[in-house]
Protein backbone atom coordinates (compact mmCIF):
# COMPACT_ATOMS: atom_id res chain seq x y z
CA UNK A 1 0.00 0.00 0.00
CA UNK A 2 2.76 2.38 0.97
CA UNK A 3 4.64 1.58 -2.20
CA UNK A 4 1.66 2.36 -4.35
CA UNK A 5 1.19 5.68 -2.63
CA UNK A 6 4.82 6.53 -3.41
CA UNK A 7 4.31 5.59 -7.05
CA UNK A 8 1.26 7.80 -7.17
CA UNK A 9 3.04 10.78 -5.69
CA UNK A 10 6.00 10.33 -8.08
CA UNK A 11 3.49 10.23 -10.90
CA UNK A 12 1.75 13.45 -9.89
CA UNK A 13 5.04 15.23 -9.18
CA UNK A 14 6.36 14.36 -12.62
CA UNK A 15 3.18 15.57 -14.32
CA UNK A 16 3.50 18.83 -12.39
CA UNK A 17 7.15 19.17 -13.43
CA UNK A 18 6.29 18.53 -17.09
CA UNK A 19 3.65 21.27 -17.00
CA UNK A 20 5.97 23.62 -15.12
CA UNK A 21 8.68 23.17 -17.76
CA UNK A 22 6.07 23.77 -20.48
CA UNK A 23 5.12 27.00 -18.76
CA UNK A 24 8.79 27.94 -18.55
CA UNK A 25 9.13 27.36 -22.31
CA UNK A 26 6.34 29.84 -23.01
CA UNK A 27 7.79 32.65 -20.85
CA UNK A 28 10.32 33.82 -23.50
CA UNK A 29 7.54 34.16 -26.09
CA UNK A 30 5.55 36.42 -23.78
CA UNK A 31 8.62 38.44 -22.82
CA UNK A 32 9.83 38.96 -26.39
CA UNK A 33 6.39 40.04 -27.59
CA UNK A 34 5.82 42.29 -24.56
CA UNK A 35 9.15 44.13 -24.84
CA UNK A 36 8.90 44.47 -28.61
CA UNK A 37 5.50 46.12 -28.25
CA UNK A 38 6.42 48.25 -25.22
CA UNK A 39 9.72 49.48 -26.63
CA UNK A 40 8.63 49.61 -30.27
CA UNK A 41 5.43 51.61 -29.84
CA UNK A 42 7.08 54.97 -28.98
CA UNK A 43 8.74 55.00 -32.41
CA UNK A 44 6.01 53.21 -34.35
CA UNK A 45 3.16 55.38 -33.02
CA UNK A 46 4.26 58.35 -35.16
CA UNK A 47 2.74 58.10 -38.65
CA UNK A 48 5.85 59.62 -40.25
CA UNK A 49 7.79 56.54 -39.07
CA UNK A 50 6.11 54.66 -41.91
CA UNK A 51 6.47 57.34 -44.59
CA UNK A 52 9.90 58.91 -44.06
CA UNK A 53 13.39 57.51 -44.52
CA UNK A 54 16.52 57.67 -42.42
CA UNK A 55 17.57 61.05 -41.00
CA UNK A 56 20.82 62.03 -39.32
CA UNK A 57 20.98 61.20 -35.60
CA UNK A 58 18.54 63.23 -33.47
CA UNK A 59 16.91 65.00 -36.43
CA UNK A 60 13.21 64.37 -35.76
CA UNK A 61 10.91 62.67 -38.24
CA UNK A 62 13.10 59.72 -39.18
CA UNK A 63 11.31 56.68 -40.57
CA UNK A 64 11.74 53.24 -42.04
CA UNK A 65 9.76 53.55 -45.28
CA UNK A 66 12.85 52.56 -47.27
CA UNK A 67 13.26 49.38 -45.19
CA UNK A 68 9.59 48.38 -45.49
CA UNK A 69 9.60 48.91 -49.26
CA UNK A 70 12.95 47.14 -49.50
CA UNK A 71 11.77 44.08 -47.59
CA UNK A 72 8.65 43.86 -49.78
CA UNK A 73 10.69 44.08 -53.00
CA UNK A 74 13.40 41.67 -51.80
CA UNK A 75 10.92 39.03 -50.67
CA UNK A 76 8.68 39.66 -53.70
CA UNK A 77 11.44 38.96 -56.21
CA UNK A 78 12.60 35.93 -54.20
CA UNK A 79 9.03 34.57 -54.23
CA UNK A 80 8.77 35.01 -58.00
CA UNK A 81 11.76 32.70 -58.34
CA UNK A 82 11.19 30.25 -55.52
CA UNK A 83 7.42 29.63 -55.63
CA UNK A 84 7.07 28.22 -59.20
CA UNK A 85 10.18 26.07 -58.81
CA UNK A 86 9.18 24.91 -55.34
CA UNK A 87 5.61 24.06 -56.32
CA UNK A 88 6.61 22.07 -59.42
CA UNK A 89 9.35 20.30 -57.46
CA UNK A 90 6.88 19.52 -54.68
CA UNK A 91 4.43 18.00 -57.19
CA UNK A 92 7.26 15.84 -58.49
CA UNK A 93 8.11 14.63 -54.97
CA UNK A 94 4.49 13.67 -54.27
CA UNK A 95 3.37 12.34 -57.66
CA UNK A 96 6.46 10.32 -58.54
CA UNK A 97 7.31 9.30 -55.00
CA UNK A 98 8.27 5.78 -56.02
CA UNK A 99 11.42 6.82 -57.84
CA UNK A 100 14.63 6.55 -55.82
CA UNK A 101 15.75 10.00 -56.86
CA UNK A 102 12.94 11.63 -54.86
CA UNK A 103 14.47 10.30 -51.63
CA UNK A 104 17.66 12.22 -52.40
CA UNK A 105 15.76 15.36 -53.35
CA UNK A 106 13.79 15.14 -50.10
CA UNK A 107 16.96 14.71 -48.03
CA UNK A 108 18.59 17.62 -49.87
CA UNK A 109 15.56 19.82 -49.09
CA UNK A 110 15.64 18.95 -45.40
CA UNK A 111 19.38 19.55 -45.21
CA UNK A 112 19.00 22.86 -47.07
CA UNK A 113 16.41 24.02 -44.52
CA UNK A 114 19.03 23.52 -41.79
CA UNK A 115 21.90 25.14 -43.69
CA UNK A 116 23.21 28.26 -41.90
CA UNK A 117 21.73 31.28 -43.67
CA UNK A 118 25.03 33.15 -43.39
CA UNK A 119 26.62 30.49 -45.63
CA UNK A 120 23.86 31.02 -48.19
CA UNK A 121 24.72 34.72 -48.03
CA UNK A 122 28.38 33.96 -48.81
CA UNK A 123 27.22 31.78 -51.69
CA UNK A 124 25.02 34.53 -53.15
CA UNK A 125 27.86 37.01 -52.69
CA UNK A 126 30.25 34.84 -54.71
CA UNK A 127 27.77 34.26 -57.54
CA UNK A 128 25.77 37.49 -57.73
CA UNK A 129 27.79 40.28 -56.07
CA UNK A 130 31.48 39.65 -56.74
CA UNK A 131 31.14 39.32 -60.58
CA UNK A 132 29.29 42.66 -60.78
CA UNK A 133 31.46 44.50 -58.23
CA UNK A 134 28.53 45.99 -56.33
CA UNK A 135 25.84 44.97 -53.86
CA UNK A 136 22.33 44.59 -55.25
CA UNK A 137 18.80 43.74 -54.16
CA UNK A 138 18.75 40.98 -56.78
CA UNK A 139 21.58 39.11 -55.06
CA UNK A 140 19.71 39.41 -51.76
CA UNK A 141 16.59 38.00 -53.39
CA UNK A 142 18.68 35.16 -54.79
CA UNK A 143 19.88 34.25 -51.30
CA UNK A 144 16.35 34.44 -49.91
CA UNK A 145 15.02 32.28 -52.76
CA UNK A 146 17.50 29.52 -51.85
CA UNK A 147 16.15 29.68 -48.28
CA UNK A 148 12.51 29.58 -49.40
CA UNK A 149 12.77 26.85 -52.02
CA UNK A 150 13.05 23.76 -49.76
CA UNK A 151 10.23 24.96 -47.46
CA UNK A 152 7.86 25.42 -50.41
CA UNK A 153 8.84 22.09 -51.97
CA UNK A 154 8.24 20.08 -48.82
CA UNK A 155 4.93 21.72 -47.89
CA UNK A 156 3.64 21.39 -51.47
CA UNK A 157 4.57 17.72 -51.36
CA UNK A 158 2.64 17.30 -48.12
CA UNK A 159 -0.42 19.12 -49.49
CA UNK A 160 -0.49 17.09 -52.71
CA UNK A 161 -0.20 13.87 -50.72
CA UNK A 162 -3.33 14.78 -48.77
CA UNK A 163 -5.38 14.61 -51.98
CA UNK A 164 -7.13 11.20 -52.22
CA UNK A 165 -5.91 9.08 -55.14
CA UNK A 166 -9.51 8.76 -56.38
CA UNK A 167 -9.28 12.27 -57.85
CA UNK A 168 -6.08 11.41 -59.72
CA UNK A 169 -7.44 8.08 -60.94
CA UNK A 170 -10.72 9.55 -62.21
CA UNK A 171 -8.76 12.14 -64.18
CA UNK A 172 -6.52 9.49 -65.70
CA UNK A 173 -9.54 7.26 -66.44
CA UNK A 174 -11.07 10.11 -68.45
CA UNK A 175 -7.94 10.03 -70.58
CA UNK A 176 -6.33 13.23 -69.33
CA UNK A 177 -2.54 13.31 -69.68
CA UNK A 178 -0.50 13.26 -66.46
CA UNK A 179 0.43 16.94 -66.67
CA UNK A 180 -3.19 18.04 -66.89
CA UNK A 181 -4.12 15.79 -64.00
CA UNK A 182 -1.30 17.23 -61.88
CA UNK A 183 -1.73 20.89 -62.79
CA UNK A 184 -5.49 21.18 -63.39
CA UNK A 185 -6.96 18.64 -60.96
CA UNK A 186 -4.49 17.97 -58.15
CA UNK A 187 -2.91 21.42 -57.82
CA UNK A 188 -6.22 23.36 -57.44
CA UNK A 189 -7.40 20.82 -54.86
CA UNK A 190 -4.12 21.22 -52.97
CA UNK A 191 -4.04 25.01 -53.39
CA UNK A 192 -4.67 25.99 -49.73
CA UNK A 193 -1.82 23.74 -48.55
CA UNK A 194 0.48 25.08 -51.25
CA UNK A 195 -0.39 28.65 -50.28
CA UNK A 196 0.34 27.82 -46.63
CA UNK A 197 3.83 26.66 -47.57
CA UNK A 198 4.44 29.73 -49.68
CA UNK A 199 3.28 32.03 -46.86
CA UNK A 200 5.46 30.27 -44.29
CA UNK A 201 8.49 30.62 -46.55
CA UNK A 202 7.68 34.31 -47.10
CA UNK A 203 7.47 34.81 -43.33
CA UNK A 204 10.82 33.09 -42.83
CA UNK A 205 12.49 35.10 -45.62
CA UNK A 206 11.13 38.43 -44.33
CA UNK A 207 12.88 37.92 -41.00
CA UNK A 208 16.28 36.84 -42.30
CA UNK A 209 19.19 39.20 -41.67
CA UNK A 210 22.36 37.19 -42.17
CA UNK A 211 22.03 36.47 -45.92
CA UNK A 212 21.28 40.14 -46.68
CA UNK A 213 24.29 41.69 -44.91
CA UNK A 214 26.60 41.33 -47.87
CA UNK A 215 24.12 40.93 -50.73
CA UNK A 216 21.36 43.57 -50.53
CA UNK A 217 23.66 45.33 -48.04
CA UNK A 218 21.64 48.42 -47.06
CA UNK A 219 20.73 51.83 -48.34
CA UNK A 220 19.87 55.01 -46.41
CA UNK A 221 17.56 56.14 -49.22
CA UNK A 222 14.33 54.85 -50.66
CA UNK A 223 15.35 52.64 -53.57
CA UNK A 224 13.16 50.60 -55.86
CA UNK A 225 15.83 49.61 -58.39
CA UNK A 226 16.67 45.94 -57.78
CA UNK A 227 20.12 46.26 -59.31
CA UNK A 228 21.13 48.65 -56.52
CA UNK A 229 21.72 48.08 -52.79
CA UNK A 230 18.51 48.03 -50.78
CA UNK A 231 17.57 48.46 -47.12
CA UNK A 232 15.45 45.86 -45.34
CA UNK A 233 13.69 45.71 -41.96
CA UNK A 234 15.91 43.05 -40.31
CA UNK A 235 19.10 44.84 -41.37
CA UNK A 236 17.69 48.12 -40.00
CA UNK A 237 17.05 46.45 -36.64
CA UNK A 238 20.50 44.85 -36.59
CA UNK A 239 22.49 47.99 -37.44
CA UNK A 240 20.51 50.53 -35.42
CA UNK A 241 20.31 48.35 -32.31
CA UNK A 242 24.10 48.23 -32.09
CA UNK A 243 24.63 51.99 -32.47
CA UNK A 244 25.15 54.06 -29.31
CA UNK A 245 22.35 56.59 -29.97
CA UNK A 246 19.09 56.36 -28.12
CA UNK A 247 16.99 57.71 -31.00
CA UNK A 248 18.41 55.09 -33.38
CA UNK A 249 17.86 52.32 -30.84
CA UNK A 250 14.23 53.44 -30.56
CA UNK A 251 13.92 53.20 -34.33
CA UNK A 252 15.42 49.70 -34.15
CA UNK A 253 12.72 48.66 -31.66
CA UNK A 254 10.07 50.27 -33.87
CA UNK A 255 11.34 48.37 -36.92
CA UNK A 256 11.42 45.16 -34.84
CA UNK A 257 7.78 45.71 -33.90
CA UNK A 258 6.78 46.22 -37.55
CA UNK A 259 8.73 43.09 -38.50
CA UNK A 260 7.15 40.95 -35.76
CA UNK A 261 3.62 42.12 -36.60
CA UNK A 262 4.25 41.37 -40.28
CA UNK A 263 5.71 37.90 -39.68
CA UNK A 264 3.08 36.85 -37.14
CA UNK A 265 0.23 38.08 -39.38
CA UNK A 266 1.57 36.03 -42.29
CA UNK A 267 1.91 33.05 -39.95
CA UNK A 268 -1.62 33.28 -38.59
CA UNK A 269 -3.02 33.70 -42.12
CA UNK A 270 -1.21 30.56 -43.21
CA UNK A 271 -2.67 28.67 -40.27
CA UNK A 272 -6.17 29.76 -41.30
CA UNK A 273 -5.57 28.70 -44.92
CA UNK A 274 -4.21 25.34 -43.78
CA UNK A 275 -7.35 24.67 -41.77
CA UNK A 276 -9.36 25.14 -44.98
CA UNK A 277 -7.12 22.62 -46.74
CA UNK A 278 -7.76 19.97 -44.10
CA UNK A 279 -11.53 20.56 -44.34
CA UNK A 280 -11.35 20.46 -48.15
CA UNK A 281 -9.35 17.25 -48.23
CA UNK A 282 -11.93 15.70 -45.92
CA UNK A 283 -14.69 16.47 -48.43
CA UNK A 284 -12.93 15.02 -51.46
Amino acid sequence: MNRNRRRQSINYTSIAIAYALTGLALIPLGLVLWFTIAKGLPAASHPEFFFNVERPVDVPGAGIAHAIVGTLILVGIASLGAIPIGVLGGIYLAEYATSRWTDWVRLACDVLVGTPSIAIGLFAYALLVAPFHHFSALSGSGALAVLMLPIIMRTTEGAVRLIPSGLRESGLALGLPRWRVSLQLILPAAAPGVITGALLSVARASGETAPLLFTAFGNPFLNTDPTQPMQSLPVTVFHNALLPYQSLQEQAWGAALVLVVMVLLINLTSRYVLRRQIRLAGQL
Binding site: A25, S206, E208, P234, A241, A252
Partner: peptide, 22 residues
Protein backbone atom coordinates in the same frame (compact mmCIF):
# COMPACT_ATOMS: atom_id res chain seq x y z
CA UNK B 1 0.58 27.30 -31.51
CA UNK B 2 2.72 29.15 -28.96
CA UNK B 3 5.74 26.98 -29.78
CA UNK B 4 5.23 27.61 -33.50
CA UNK B 5 5.06 31.36 -32.89
CA UNK B 6 8.31 31.04 -30.94
CA UNK B 7 9.82 29.57 -34.11
CA UNK B 8 8.33 32.31 -36.28
CA UNK B 9 9.93 35.26 -34.45
CA UNK B 10 12.89 36.49 -36.51
CA UNK B 11 16.40 35.97 -35.20
CA UNK B 12 17.16 39.70 -35.15
CA UNK B 13 14.20 40.32 -32.83
CA UNK B 14 15.59 37.77 -30.37
CA UNK B 15 18.86 39.59 -30.80
CA UNK B 16 17.60 43.05 -29.88
CA UNK B 17 15.60 41.58 -26.97
CA UNK B 18 18.62 39.72 -25.65
CA UNK B 19 20.84 42.77 -26.09
CA UNK B 20 18.61 45.21 -24.16
CA UNK B 21 16.53 43.01 -21.87
CA UNK B 22 17.86 39.51 -21.28
Amino acid sequence: IAIELLAAIPSVVYGIWALYVL
